[in-house]
Design a protein around this nucleic acid. Structure first.
Lengths: 249, 249
DNA sequence: TTTGCAAAGTGGTATGACCACTGTAAGGCC
DNA sequence: GGCCTTACAGTGGTCATACCACTTTGCAAA
């Protein structure tokens, strides 16, 4: 527990030095999730910095989600939480207009690879889980809000079934933006003729390709789904400007 | 018994209060990138907290990339930087063994989509840039360290040429892990027979497919490249255990 | 006018003290 | 003896002050 710690580098400034120290401790595995840190007073002595400076670093690590600081008990190493990332992405990409369109590229990238992995790795339980999301999608086909949500969870279930932490992490990082994107698209295209039948068919075909464990077919279906989705989206723009009376809302 | 803090309408604790304050200021637009903050002494007075507590919040925001703090000058609002994501993923690496293998899935996902976009969107200047990386790759083919680095920059150039902020953001987020992965793989496979010729040929074919603006061919070449790369990697394991005397360096 | 230096303002750090919360162990009560 | 209460020690949370290091500014001297 209280083994001697590595010497902190002296060429860095105080708080940076402390931050670098904990990064190394975490990367090297000397600090694992669940471990309890030494007290602030003890650490500040060992690292040769004052307590306020040490606290600046600890607070920063806490904000990044790597530390759980409990009043009166101590500071504990926490396994990194993705929610920090999603907040960050949402905040950071929100400043950029039209980002919702571009996020679609990331979505296509992740899902196309994920669906290939699903065909290789998924279990029957995974198939069941994805199937239940498909059912939910069909049930809510008339409600843009719930339907968009169901659409999102269907695709999320696919990425989860890929059993790739890295893919899932990236997907979760943009999940908040994707959720919005789904609902927004549903609202846009809800009045386009044939959209409901198409949505159900497209998702069912994707699902069947997965269960058939055919990677190429699955990716092709998925890419078609995305492409035709864009098509419907364009149609909705055309419809909006050609007949204004449809905008009764 | 405890004295009431009439000045603070917020019932939050000190540091949290400061953090919430800046979050609101940023989200509401009252603070814009480039703005200069009041001095620490001034802010600590106005917010009713001590300077160390204020500094904890400022340092956290700085670590998250929202502030640029300059010694002797002041603190400036910065538009969110992606570099913090790299740190975040690097931290995540420590907690999950064998993540380097799995990150490969994310790499394949992003690059396969990126290369399709490149075929559609890239300019001649992009082709030139990617080509120069290819030249560098061929020059350094005998040096695992520099070669791995050149390999990495070649692929990075492709993702950049895709002109998709979201894809580039995700790629940069895992770039530090990818860089290590490249070099590590080079060191592993450097002694496998025919690896040098293969590497040059594979990258050249990918490049040619890009310049031909053939998305399907480009993605296929790229996937082949990844698959055969795995093949060479397996061969290196076999080689390592069948003739131990080769492990001299 | 140009140059050099000192002062003011800023962030960076250190120190010591005190408050608030938690867990524990000693003590008193039943 | 067993249970409850209480006091204490350890921890994070906060504060005030002083001083150091860096940057800019402006004044004064050459």
């Amino acid at each position: 527990m209280s083994t001697v710690l590595a010497e902190a580098p002296d060429d860095l400034l105080g708080a940076e030095k402390v931050f670098a120290f904990f990064r190394d401790e975490l990367l090297s595995g000397r600090l694992k999730p669940g471990d309890r840190l030494l007290s602030e007073r003890e650490l500040s002595l060992r690292l040769g910095v004052s307590r306020p400076v040490l606290r600046e670093a600890l607070r920063s690590l806490s904000m990044l989600g790597f530390l759980d600081i409990l009043h009166g008990k101590g500071a504990y190493v926490k396994s990194a939480d993705i929610s920090v990332l999603t907040d960050f992405f949402t905040f950071c990409l929100a400043q950029q207009p039209d980002i919702l369109d571009d996020v679609m590229q990331a979505r296509i990238a992740i899902e196309c690879q994920a669906i290939r992995l699903v065909c290789e790795r998924a279990s029957d339980g995974d198939f069941l889980r994805i199937g239940s999301k498909l059912s939910r999608l069909m049930e809510t086909i008339n409600d843009p809000e719930a339907g968009g949500e169901a659409d999102f969870t269907f695709h999320m279930a696919i990425v989860e079934a890929a059993r790739s932490p890295a893919l899932l992490t990236l997907y979760q990082a943009i999940s908040e933006l994707l959720r919005r994107s789904h609902v927004e698209r549903r609202k846009l295209t809800v009045q386009v003729a044939g959209i409901r039948d198409y949505l159900v068919d497209a998702h069912r075909e994707v699902y069947l390709s997965i269960v058939a464990r055919d990677p190429d077919a699955a990716e092709t279906r998925l890419r078609e789904h995305f492409a035709i989705g864009d098509e419907f989206r364009r149609k909705s723009f055309i419809a909006a400007f050609s007949k204004a009376e449809k905008q009764e809302d």
